[in-house]
Amino acid sequence: MEKLLEIKNLHAQIDGKEILKGIDLTVNYGEIHAIMGPNGSGKSTLSNVLAGREGYEVTEGEVIYKGRNLLELEPEERAREGIFMAFQYPVEIPGVNNSYFLKAALNAKLKHEGKPEIDAMDFLTLVRDRMKIVEMDDKFMNRGVNEGFSGGEKKRNEILQMAVLEPTLAILDETDSGLDIDALRIVAEGVNKLRSPERSVIMVTHYQRLLDYIVPDFVHVLSAGQIIKSGDKSLALELEEKGYGWLLGEDEAA
């Protein structure tokens, strides 16, 4: 199977504090990987490093994406190359219109791919179609990006952006947190619609529940900046039952 992403011995720190302590992870095209792990273990840090957020210093290791050194790319270049991170805490940007922001993002990507920009009508049709998937109302498009959105609405907006931008690698950082049962199903459907042999997903989650809807190919447990266990979907069930203590204990024993 062809590799989309290869993370090798990744070490990263924030403000001189090491958070990621040697991550190894390979994601092939078409795969869905779930990452679980206790609070503060470095899941968001990993997501942010992949998306290119500043303030994170990679001190060791490498990340190969589509055969290229990902860490050399600016955040926008990564986005145009198909990386999309749904934020654990989507940012409110008052005054930046949701609709024109999304159109700018899509056009940036199309331009990068050497395609013509989308015209206003086609964009509207596309967005309407994608909004149906996440069951979002039209009125959200004319508001500021996430401005005054409820927690769940923000998460849906992230998925809407994802559905419009059709990334190759979607990194969903706890997109299920704070969602009601219906929203969880809606968001999961959005992800499942995107699922294809050309695309991969990294899903950070605390809950088995999401994995009932989006069945992962692999489950990894991140603890204190390292992947301490990997397995298939049954690992998530086992974790649900036994908690992280089980694994951490096992780790100590080893």
Binding site: A51, G52, R53, E54, E74, P75, E76, R78, A79, R80, F84, M85, F87, P90, V91, I93, P94, G95, V96, F101, L102, A104, A105, L106, A108, K109, H112, G144, V145, Q161, L165
Partner: peptide, 28 residues
């Protein structure tokens, strides 16, 4: 910087992201 990053993470280049945010501010 988090606002700038959010926009860049969706594919807008830095100048465009900054202009969009500045424009929003002025629009108040």
């Amino acid at each position: 910087p988090l606002h700038v990053f959010y926009l860049r993470s969706r594919g807008l280049d830095e100048a465009q992201a900054r202009s969009m945010l500045t424009y929003a501010f002025a629009n108040e």
